[in-house]
């Protein structure tokens, strides 16, 4: 692994695309520091005291929202959570109106989740604070990829020369896209395992191998990354039934046996038990790092907020 960059040069964190290996390592190193601190009695600091962080969520998400809120609070920032339901969108206030309104209140960072790809970037063009993408449509979810990377690095000691299988609903997944970009950037090999309907067109051009047969796809893998089947985003028949999906593409002991004996099992959550993953493997304390992923989520978000807000302060508040 190359050295970490000496600073984070971007005003925002909108995606993994455009980050260098050094910049990724910088964030992970800082996150590792917070991961240790979070396990100690002295969890909090005042490094972001006086900073205002607004969590603007256009999609409901208890887990990610809580993780960001906790991250900001542990750094001493003031946090406001805004969950904008679809109802207020129907009232006519556009994304840009909301952005301008919040911007007028001079926050230091906006953490944004939105159901539409590109929405967070659009918003970032209209505000002068740091913007952190907490998931936009099926485009990117950078902090998820970073927390996955941190979890992998803690167990495997590296992020290069690993075989990573990302399995399941690739078509609707921003997690998959961010992970492909990050793992490729760091020098690992990515395979996608899914039925053909859940593999987006021309995704092989992103430098991945594609498998429809799960046993074949998991062969000699170091990491098995499962994705949540996003039934709520599906229009039309992507899969015939949950039963059939689990039969061919759900992770159970038998299919897992094809991976390396020390392969890690990962899942971004929330899990659909019995749909994409069997409880027996999800809860396997030897192999599953799913709970550690949640833990690393807070650490990675602390690191990202710290770097972004500090940049924002250095630039005199002009992102």
């Amino acid at each position: 692994m190359g050295p970490a960059a000496d600073h984070y040069p971007h005003p925002h964190l909108l995606g993994i695309e455009g980050l260098t290996p050094g910049e990724i390592t910088l964030i992970l190193d800082r996150a590792q520091h917070y991961a240790e601190k979070n396990r100690s009695a002295d969890k909090t600091s005042n490094i972001l005291a006086g900073a205002t962080v607004v969590n603007l969520f256009y999609e409901n998400s208890t887990r990610t929202l809580t993780s960001f809120e906790l991250a900001a609070k542990r750094l001493g920032a003031d946090v406001i959570n805004m969950t904008v339901g679809t109802s207020s969108v129907k009232k006519g206030e556009t994304l840009i109106d909301t952005a301008m309104t919040l911007n007028a209140m001079n926050p230091d960072a906006l953490v944004v989740r939105h159901a539409d790809s590109g929405a967070v970037k659009l918003l970032s063009e209209k505000v002068n604070c740091a913007v952190l993408n907490a998931g936009d449509g099926r485009h990117e979810h950078p902090t998820q990829a970073l927390l996955d990377a941190l979890t992998i690095r803690r167990h495997k000691g590296r992020l290069h020369r690993l075989n990573v299988a990302i399995c399941g609903d690739i078509a609707h997944s921003r997690v998959a896209r961010s992970n492909i970009l990050l793992l490729n950037t760091m020098g690992s090999r990515v395979r996608l395992v899914a039925p053909p309907t859940l593999i987006p067109s021309k995704i092989d051009r992103m430098g991945v191998e594609i498998f429809h047969d799960m046993e074949e796809g998991l062969k000699d893998c170091d990491i098995v990354m499962m994705l949540r089947l996003q039934l709520e985003r599906m229009e039309g028949s992507f899969i015939p039934s949950v039963r059939e999906y689990f039969h061919f593409h759900g992770l159970d002991r038998a299919k897992l046996a094809n991976a390396k004996p020390d392969a890690l099992i990962m899942h971004p959550g929330p899990m659909n038990r019995g749909v994409e993953i069997d409880s027996e493997v999800a809860d396997d304390v030897e192999r599953s790092v799913i709970r550690e992923q949640v833990e690393m989520g807070v650490a990675v978000r602390m690191a990202a907020l710290e770097l972004l807000v500090q940049n924002h302060r250095k630039m005199g508040g002009q992102a």
């Binding site: 695309e17 590109g118 896209r177 987006p200 067109s201 051009r205 229009e235």
Partner: peptide, 21 residues
């Protein structure tokens, strides 16, 4: 082409947009 907002292919996949073939 229902629900699609650009041409399908690598770019649509990278941008996370639904593509029409």
């Amino acid at each position: 082409s229902k629900g699609a907002s650009m041409n399908s292919g690598e770019l649509a996949t990278r941008l996370g947009l639904s593509g029409v073939s």
